[in-house]
Computed example of a mutant assay.
Amino acid sequence: MITFENPVLEAIFSRRSIRKYTNEPVSREDITTILEAGQWAPSGLNNQPWRFMVITRDDPRHAALAECTKYAHVVRASAACICVMLEKEAMYSEMKDHQGAGACIQNMLLAAHALGIGTVWLGQIVNDQATSLWALNLSPETYELQAVIALGHPDQKGSSTRKDLSELMLEEF
């Protein structure tokens, strides 16, 4: 693994998706810090159309949310889930707002990693917007679910590989 003296680069290169968690709860303070990191993501016209909902393990919606994804076991194991929505009336450009939501989610993943909290970005759950939003008691006319971030204290080491950068380049520079 590449290591850096710079903590931002170190976080980017060392963050991994974590799908197994201990039973230890995540503190309200840590969750607030993670949410604030998302809040500071860039957005077109600084419109900040994202909205967050934190669903902890003891909330009945946690179990309902698990039923909305083939990754139910990950949701059930998590201490909490951060649901990231776009508020439709706050959006001004579908593409730019979706890009902003991605930046928001990445900020939260990196903040959690910096705090020693494991996360995984669950994207498959957005395939059935109506059911997922219903589980959260939210209206699909008002919100568009972007992702659910499952989080908890890690009970596994993450691993990943990446394609060689040359495979991703359209031309040499």
Rank of each mutant, 00 (worst) to 15 (best):
G116M: 04
W50K: 04
H113T: 12
L170E: 10
A72H: 13
M53Y: 08
H62C: 07
L165W: 12
H153F: 09
R16P: 08
T119R: 07
A150D: 11
S159N: 09
E36D: 13
G118R: 02
E24A: 15
I117G: 09
I34W: 04
W134C: 12
P154T: 10
L9D: 11
D155A: 15
I34H: 02
V84K: 00
S159G: 14
L138D: 00
T3N: 12
L133T: 04
V8I: 15
D128V: 09
R15M: 05
Q99L: 14
W134S: 15
R162A: 14
T22M: 10
T69Y: 06
H73Q: 13
E172P: 03
I31H: 07
S166M: 02
V126L: 00
K20R: 15
A130E: 13
I12H: 08
R57T: 13
L109R: 00
M91E: 14
R19V: 04
S166R: 10
G44F: 06
I55E: 04
L136P: 03
A150F: 09
E172T: 06
E87M: 03
L145M: 04
A130I: 11
E172S: 05
T161W: 08
S160Q: 05
L115D: 03
L170N: 13
V26R: 05
A64D: 14
R61G: 07
T69Q: 06
M1L: 14
E89K: 13
W134V: 03
A79Y: 11
Q146V: 11
E36Q: 14
C81L: 10
S160F: 11
M1H: 13
A79V: 06
F173P: 15
P25T: 06
H113F: 12
M108H: 05
T119W: 03
L110R: 05
L136N: 07
H98S: 07
L115S: 10
S139C: 06
S139A: 05
E24L: 13
T22H: 08
D59Y: 11
I55N: 07
A111C: 11
D58H: 14
T32W: 11
Q48P: 02
C68G: 10
M53H: 02
E144N: 04
V126I: 14
V74M: 09
I125T: 05
K96D: 06
D128S: 06
R16I: 06
